[in-house]
Design a protein around this nucleic acid. Sequence first.
DNA 1: TATCCGGGGTTTTTT
DNA 2: ACCCCGGATA
Length: 752
Amino acid sequence: MNLEGLNSSQRAAVEYNDGPQLVIAGAGSGKTRVLTYKIAYLLSQGVPANRILALTFTNKAAREMRDRIARMVDAADVRYLWMGTFHSICSKILRHEAEHIGFTRDFTIYDTQDQKSLVKQVLKLYSLDDKVYKPNTVLGRISAAKNALIKPSDYARNESVAKQDRQDRLYEMPKIYSEYQTRLRAANAMDFDDLLMYVCLLLEKDEATRRYYQQVFQYVLVDEYQDTNYVQYRIVSYLAEPENRICVVGDDAQSIYSFRGADIRNILHFQQGYPNARLFKLEQNYRSTQTIVKAANSLIHHNENQIYKEVFSEKEPGERIDLVGYMTDRNEGEGVARSIQQYHAIKGVSYNDIAVLYRTNAQSRTFENEFRKLGIAYRIYGGMSFYQRKEIKDAIAYFRLAVNPKDNEALVRVINYPARGIGETTIRKVSECATMQNTSMLEVVQHPVECGLEVSKATASKLGAFGDLIATLHEAADTMNAYEFAEKVMLLSGIRTAAVMDRTPEGIDRAENLQELLTGIHELIDRRTEEGIDFTPIHDFLAEVSLLTDQDQNLTDDTPRVTLMTVHAAKGLEFEVVYIVGLEENLFPSQMCVKPSEIEEERRLLYVALTRAMQYCHMSYARQRFRNGSVQFSSPSRFLRDIDRQYIALREGSVAGTPATAAPRWRNNSWSTPSKPAMPSVPTKPLTHISDIKTETQSAEYQAGERVRHGTFGEGTVLQVYEENGTRRIDILFDKFGKKAMLIQFAKLEKI
DNA sequence: TATCCGGGGTTTTTT
DNA sequence: ACCCCGGATA
């Protein structure tokens, strides 16, 4: 095995394989390279592929790594590597062990929508107000419990959980959680968190199974370890025993998923768990210019909680980071679009090498509009993905129901689609009957008399027809291959007819999407055939599709496109040119965070964004942004102050079409008041440093009806002052705009 | 039973 | 601005 493509620290990390190992890999330091080489190295040392478990963050990362390994070692057995996300590996294990835990191997994985609908049913059952018990909040609690390995039976007894629930007046959480879990079980279904929780509980309780998997996995490797949560930590610990040949790779500075339970302490305290663990640090960045790396360092060093490291680059110094203040969000869109056009036209940069990164998906709109105007091809990740479209979900629901007859959510989805004259009332009766008889809804539909369902004769025959359809499909599901089965579903269910009949643009779209779904299924079969598997039932397609994410879609499209995505989605990627937009208080950092630890996470998020850039990095903010239906005024992000000034070049963005109000603006690299101020009485201290940017919110006693003056937007009348999500807000009717504006920053306000 | 309309609530990030 | 829900109507 040739390890010459590695530097000395990378090489040391690859060659050490005798015990627990922690690799702290700074951004762009060749983390994936180390993992790839390491696995190839293990294979070359004679470790069988099916004895290696490698957990990655996305399926795409797994696929790419597999390809790279296959190119290094000429072993055909690369496909036997256990490589994938925690969720997909757990799902694979659970399909094997399903019977041990009271499921069949055909269990369905409920997605977020299914979960939500299930929670609503439970709330209805107990007549709970969904204004108090918000489905999303309830789901968040359940998810947190599962990540902490708290089963429904333990939930009520857990003091810390109970305390939190009391505080939020969610007294019935134990009941809800328990019923939710019962219903999932009854539907032979699991949610995302169950996949992890059940594997963990299985390993904990069943010694034979635990021994078995411990023996199977001689080596355990975990990528992006900083984003693992408690269950994942436990699973990894179990599997690595007793030899503890475990290698975790990560960067604490890039931990950005605590909102879904990731615990940065896993990586910070790894060495406490494994006292004999060896630490390897990769600090040389091969991706970005020195300026970008140094700027990112200066930012992240403002965090309290971190493993200290100094990432460095030996590439050219490069250009300073361009920071532009725009007047409005639209200006920002225009400015970025124009700048991209210049890179494209003058420097000949491909659109593929350019990315626009934002904090929230909602920000993509403005850029889409401006890009379309200038004819810039783009690709958006996130938002509505292919598999979330209604017609696709409907088709998949038929697949699901055919494979797992207990899948009630799937049944409710398609029982009246296409329209069969089965209405809400009937569905409710079926559901109630199923609950009473302790059976599935499909069972009730197929045997209404035995279940004691009382419906009219006409309704009964409609139900019967649907029941027969599903019965036919159920039989076909196991015997036909996935593609032919899908064709059959489209034909018999009438969803294709429904789509084809509809000649509206949306209808045509839907028909095309269904066709694309068929193509996707065909591709899976082709892939399987290549791997030597000659029969692929629809079941295999379902197992894969529920764990896919947007990033996993390999878009077969050779037009170069600019990438638009959230910073979260950009993790692990790199681009020649990166635009980080919307750097404003209450947006980036998000208005949701209050605690210092949350601010630190946002700072890490910006760190991730910065370190995506290879050559050029642009940052921008807007002083006024259209959000939630009204204009909102904002000030530059506090993080701009954290970045060392010497790495930043300030510019003033386009101000075309801005209100006549005199706004302080960036000019000649400094903050200055316009020469002809419309608001002479407002003292605006000229700012010369980024550290002068005011971001603190002040409390002040404003009252409805009072007249106020805003430093940038002039005079207005206070409508109301209130608190929301822990932030003090004020609504003002500005004379200039004649429209209500919500304001979070009080700093620029004064009473008249 | 299907569809249209209006009101109310919401908007961080995702496996 | 947008989504979701409920109520009223065809």
